[in-house]
Amino acid sequence: MRTIVITGASSGVGLAAAKQLAAMGDQIVAVGRDPRRLGAAMAEIRKAATGPEPDEVRADFETLEDVRLVAEHVLSAYEKIDVLANNAGGMLGSYRVTPDGFEATAQSNHLAPFLLANLLRERLSGGRIIGTSSDAHRRARVDPDDFTGDPQAWSAWRAYGAAKGENILFAAEAARRWPDILSVSFHPGLVRTNFGADPATRLVYKIWPFLITAQKAGALLTWLATAPANELTTGAYYVGRKVTEPRQWVTDPELAARLWTSSAQAVNL
């Protein structure tokens, strides 16, 4: 039995993977933001479970204190964590600054999962970290010294793409810094979910004919969580079940190291 922490488990890819892994008998710790949606998701996960009672933690990753509370709960309840699936995140409809002082896309998609991974690091030894990234990184650039951005120049897609690039850089740098933990990122595909903050984007992600199901995307996360470690490549970016070269700028070890240092300073590690 594995202990698996899945953020963004209230819907979509995270919920699908949580149900699949619970059906395998794993201990699921589901993290979600909205109490109503998390409650509904937990009912589905419990119905699928064949092992221990699934656990839940409500947290809003636009508040770093919530991330620390998630870590406190997990550390108090579980002696070992086999998998941390940093799946929470998304795209915003407008520029917004969090109570912690960061642009909300950067915080919820990168800084919050970065902090959670670091807080759980010791319990993850011998386990793995899986980051849900996106090929949207190909249309943006990362500034490792700026997590607030310029509200006048802000774009939802650029902010989201930059954060997804940061997920790839994190996975590669974590593999270098933490060789006892398998660390990967992946593109789940264009998934039929309630993605996006604006109505037009949400509509596209509901009706576009070439989208894949959340179950299929969740199966990729499930595979990355359960495949033998020697069949996976630590630090890699996966599209489907294949290691794929991301855009060149997110393969730069110097950029990854700078991002790590600035992220650690930002979240007061």
Results as ranks from 00 to 15, higher is better:
residue 134 S to R: 06
residue 134 S to I: 03
residue 135 D to P: 00
residue 135 D to E: 10
residue 135 D to L: 14
residue 136 A to R: 04
residue 137 H to R: 05
residue 137 H to V: 05
residue 137 H to F: 07
residue 138 R to M: 07
residue 139 R to K: 15
residue 139 R to I: 13
residue 140 A to M: 12
residue 140 A to E: 10
residue 141 R to L: 13
residue 142 V to D: 06
residue 144 P to F: 09
residue 146 D to E: 07
residue 147 F to H: 11
residue 147 F to R: 08
residue 148 T to K: 14
residue 149 G to K: 01
residue 150 D to Y: 12
residue 150 D to C: 09
residue 150 D to G: 11
residue 151 P to Y: 09
residue 151 P to G: 09
residue 152 Q to K: 14
residue 152 Q to A: 15
residue 152 Q to R: 14
residue 153 A to H: 12
residue 154 W to L: 04
residue 155 S to G: 14
residue 156 A to I: 13
residue 156 A to V: 13
residue 156 A to Y: 11
residue 160 Y to M: 01
residue 161 G to L: 02
residue 161 G to R: 06
residue 161 G to F: 03
residue 165 G to H: 02
residue 165 G to I: 00
residue 165 G to P: 00
residue 166 E to G: 08
residue 167 N to A: 03
residue 167 N to G: 05
residue 167 N to Q: 11
residue 171 A to Y: 04
residue 171 A to F: 04
residue 172 A to E: 00
residue 174 A to N: 05
residue 175 A to E: 07
residue 177 R to G: 00
residue 177 R to E: 00
residue 179 P to Q: 15
residue 179 P to Y: 15
residue 180 D to N: 09
residue 180 D to A: 11
residue 180 D to E: 14
residue 182 L to Y: 08
residue 183 S to Q: 05
residue 184 V to W: 03
residue 185 S to W: 04
residue 187 H to N: 14
residue 188 P to R: 05
residue 188 P to C: 07
residue 189 G to Y: 08
residue 189 G to A: 11
residue 190 L to C: 12
residue 190 L to D: 11
residue 191 V to E: 06
residue 191 V to N: 10
residue 192 R to P: 09
residue 192 R to T: 07
residue 194 N to G: 14
residue 195 F to Q: 11
residue 196 G to R: 02
residue 197 A to P: 08
residue 198 D to C: 08
residue 198 D to G: 07
residue 199 P to G: 06
residue 200 A to C: 03
residue 200 A to R: 10
residue 201 T to R: 02
residue 201 T to W: 00
residue 201 T to V: 06
residue 203 L to S: 13
residue 204 V to N: 10
residue 204 V to S: 08
residue 205 Y to F: 15
residue 206 K to F: 04
residue 208 W to A: 15
residue 208 W to Y: 13
residue 209 P to D: 08
residue 209 P to T: 09
residue 212 I to E: 05
residue 213 T to S: 14
residue 214 A to K: 10
residue 216 K to E: 10
residue 216 K to L: 14
residue 218 G to I: 02
residue 218 G to C: 00
residue 219 A to K: 03
residue 221 L to T: 03
residue 222 T to K: 15
residue 223 W to D: 01
residue 224 L to F: 01
residue 226 T to Y: 14
residue 228 P to D: 11
residue 228 P to M: 07
residue 231 E to W: 02
residue 232 L to I: 01
residue 233 T to N: 06
residue 233 T to P: 02
residue 235 G to W: 15
residue 236 A to N: 01
residue 236 A to Y: 05
residue 237 Y to F: 15
residue 237 Y to H: 15
residue 238 Y to G: 01
residue 240 G to C: 12
residue 241 R to G: 05
residue 241 R to V: 00
residue 242 K to L: 02
residue 243 V to W: 09
residue 246 P to S: 13
residue 246 P to H: 07
residue 247 R to H: 15
residue 247 R to Q: 13
residue 248 Q to V: 11
residue 248 Q to N: 09
residue 249 W to M: 10
residue 250 V to K: 00
residue 251 T to Y: 07
residue 251 T to D: 01
residue 251 T to C: 07
residue 252 D to T: 09
residue 254 E to V: 15
residue 254 E to P: 00
residue 255 L to S: 10
residue 256 A to S: 04
residue 257 A to K: 08
residue 257 A to Q: 04
residue 258 R to Q: 11
residue 259 L to K: 04
residue 259 L to P: 06
residue 260 W to D: 02
residue 260 W to T: 03
residue 262 S to Q: 13
residue 262 S to H: 13
residue 262 S to F: 02
residue 263 S to E: 04
residue 263 S to V: 07
residue 264 A to L: 09
residue 264 A to V: 08
residue 264 A to K: 12
residue 265 Q to K: 15
residue 266 A to F: 02
